[in-house]
């Protein structure tokens, strides 16, 4: 009989691809930027790939948008915006070799139709591009990036995004795209090289979506990374304190309301934290709410320190 001793999984910071998913508006870009920053601080060379319509990460670091060219944001920290049209073109040219052939095949009405009908071709080429970055080597045969952080689209689309290889391979089994999708599928399923994180908020819909997303991801056996509970409020006043300040007369009306507001948000946060801990078998990492008039590099730095322990 052979007893297999499970090897300890590498920490998320040591994996090649970290995917950050979650509902829209939960702070995926913030967490992506903070994960990248924490890794870069530890000496990793990190690339953040953004695949949504509008890139945000460079802006969070107070830098001009990177666009489709890789740009350095900080020492060891780079970002790139992966767009479907450019990714498609690059990809097609890689296979077809000739610009004229590309134009003929892809820049006509039939091909536009084909691009709509082919299952998520836009997502496929974008995911293919991210994969290309993650697998890219330098001339000396070493990996170009220690870590690639993928800031994935919002939940519904995010899950579709990660399932793209599977869906595509169901419909298409031959050709160069199918070959690449198989490699991508293997990387996404490998807990040694990949970690899929979820970002959520202490609110009903984001929490519910995180629960559903977690279930769907585990069903498909994607390697489970941490669950980030973003914008968390910690309790600060006892119920007696809130009651006495609230009853403390007109001079304390504002303070009483503020304390009461704070505690009601902390209570909601506690509630959803409990629900999430009960239903989502992942490491839960709380990211405190930041009261910033301008959310930028400083805020990202704070968040990166808050999550460091989880990486």
């Amino acid at each position: 009989m052979c007893i297999r001793v499970p090897r300890p999984m590498p920490a998320p910071v040591d994996r090649r691809l970290v995917v950050v998913t979650g509902k829209g508006g939960t702070g995926k870009s913030t967490i992506s930027a903070a994960v990248a920053l924490a890794a870069a601080r530890r000496g990793k060379k990190v690339l953040v790939c953004e695949v949504v319509a509008k890139e945000r990460v460079a802006d969070l670091f107070g830098r001009p948008p990177s666009g489709t060219e890789i740009r350095q944001l900080l020492p060891n920290l780079y970002s790139v915006h992966v767009r479907p049209r450019e990714a498609m073109r690059e990809y097609a040219l890689m296979i077809l070799k000739y610009e004229t052939l590309y134009r003929l095949a892809f820049e006509n009405a039939a091909a536009r139709y084909f691009l709509t009908a082919a299952p998520s071709l836009a997502e496929i080429v974008m995911l293919g591009k991210v994969f290309w970055h993650a697998a890219r080597e330098t001339e000396r045969g070493r990996l170009r990036w220690d870590m690639v952080v993928l800031d994935a689209p919002a939940t519904g689309h995010g899950l579709t995004f990660l399932s793209v290889p599977e869906v595509f391979l169901r419909l298409v089994s031959e050709g160069p795209l199918a070959r690449d999708m198989r490699l991508m599928q293997a990387l996404l399923a490998d807990p040694e090289r990949c970690s899929i994180c979820i970002v959520t908020l202490p609110e009903e819909m984001p929490a519910n979506e995180a629960i559903e997303l977690d279930r769907a991801l585990r069903q498909r056996q994607f390697p489970a990374g941490p669950l980030f509970l973003n914008a968390a409020f910690e309790s600060r006043f006892s119920p007696q304190e809130v009651a006495s300040v609230t009853r403390g007369g007109p001079l304390l009306t504002a303070a009483g309301e503020a304390a009461d507001n704070h505690e009601s948000r902390a209570a909601l946060c506690r509630h959803y934290e409990g629900v999430l801990r009960d239903t989502v078998p992942r490491r839960l990492v709380k990211v405190p709410f930041l009261f910033e008039r301008n959310f930028g590099a400083q805020a990202i730095d704070k968040v990166s320190h808050a999550i460091e322990g989880a990486l």
Binding site: A105, L171, P176
Partner: peptide, 18 residues
């Protein structure tokens, strides 16, 4: 030519489905 080029990406089964 167009169809053959597209088929290089997705294989011809997909075009048949289409």
């Amino acid at each position: 030519l167009v169809l053959r080029t597209l088929a290089r990406f997705t294989g011809s089964d997909f075009l048949r489905d289409l």
